[in-house]
Design a protein around this nucleic acid. Structure first.
Lengths: 202, 202
DNA sequence: GACTGATTAGACCAGTCTGTCTATTATCTC
DNA sequence: GAGATAATAGACAGACTGGTCTAATCAGTC
């Protein structure tokens, strides 16, 4: 056995720091929460944070990457639960509803982080990547549903998606995703009624 | 003539401070912008700020009140431009489009300020008041349009309204309000088709 | 010119922030 | 036990924050 196998022996300090960052950054804001709060919450020395992540910015990046992976995975799984294109498209809002149902949901992490950041900042880049992912997913699912102009519908649905997140946060309305799903169904049906699918059925 | 008539002689320092606060707070964030930046931008001594507003918090309050008055006035005027209930309802999104068309639009001021603030904070209260105003307006206009359940439609339209603001900010898509208006028209028509108005016409 | 009152620039205070550094302690392999 | 490694607590630096205070300057009325 070698002296050490860095990849096999997982240092818990890194994970505890990330968990603490995730909780505090998300709940109280990236800007507001200081290094001292994080290392205290993680039970870790300050030097360990800087040995592990190098800077607060890098910790923020890791936090946002974790959020991105977690959210996209949840939405993807919700979509994969269904078979029909219509259900799969609407499932995006069901996945969003699952996010809202978490006990301490406080709004879209990227919208929050981006609102605190400067233009071109790390947080804004992460938010833009997330938005591109959502838009691409909605466009693809709209196309598979047979909508004549998938980009147009995807744009409208993205409005609902964003609005739903904001309403869940600011109105403390966890059923916002349900309303968004209903509105999305209406928009989808209207788009199909205007498109080639309507000609086939009519 | 008396020695001074405080209400007649308007001190420009107060207004210059408010203008500087409006510009800097909105563009760079309430938290990020410090007192020094504001007084420098306003061309005013620090003591004048504290003699006039008392604290940074009070300046933030004045800034948000100004924004509230300005935005609600713009939306109201857009609505009053039309006569038919349908046009008046959709005009809300036209007024929003006018906001987006401003050269340095950076998203809903209340969403931005609220994202930086703590729960129960001054900024969050202002954001909630603004949201209540929007929701009440949408509900009233939906009712006047003859929709059977105005609250339900208003909630969906509020999602579009919020999403539109967020898209305008984060996607730099100033035509977001146009997409929101189109989606709102679809939702309105669908709601009317389900309601008593449909029975009258069908 | 003298008085009043507002405004000015800027020093200053106490606190917070990120980040560095030192010195000590715990852990683990030999 | 010896030695290497990593984690620890915490002092410290430099920059920033909101806010107070002093002292000088300016305006307008008598």
């Amino acid at each position: 056995m070698a002296v050490k196998e860095a990849s096999a022996v997982r240092p818990p300090a890194r994970d505890r720091l990330l968990a603490a960052a995730d909780e505090l950054f998300y709940n109280e804001g990236v800007h507001t929460v200081g290094i001292d709060r994080i290392i205290e919450h993680a039970g870790v020395a300050k030097a360990s944070l800087y040995n592990t992540y190098g800077s607060k910015d890098e910790l923020v990046r890791a936090y946002l990457e974790t959020r991105h992976a977690s959210v996209t995975q949840r939405i993807t799984r919700a979509v994969e639960r269904y078979d029909t294109p219509r259900e799969r498209l609407l499932a995006v809002f069901e996945g969003q509803g699952e996010l809202f149902a978490q006990p301490d949901y406080r709004g879209c992490a990227f919208a929050r982080a981006s609102a605190e950041s400067h233009p071109g900042d790390l947080a804004e880049q992460a938010a833009e990547a997330y938005r591109r992912w959502v838009r691409a997913l909605l466009t693809e699912l709209a196309a598979q549903a047979g909508v004549p102009e998938p980009e147009v519908l995807a744009r409208e649905l993205h409005l609902l998606y964003d609005g739903s997140g904001q309403s869940a946060r600011m109105d403390h309305d966890r059923a916002a995703a349900t309303a968004a799903r209903a509105a999305a169904a209406t928009l989808l049906d209207a788009a199909l009624a205007r498109g080639p699918a309507a000609r086939l059925s009519g």
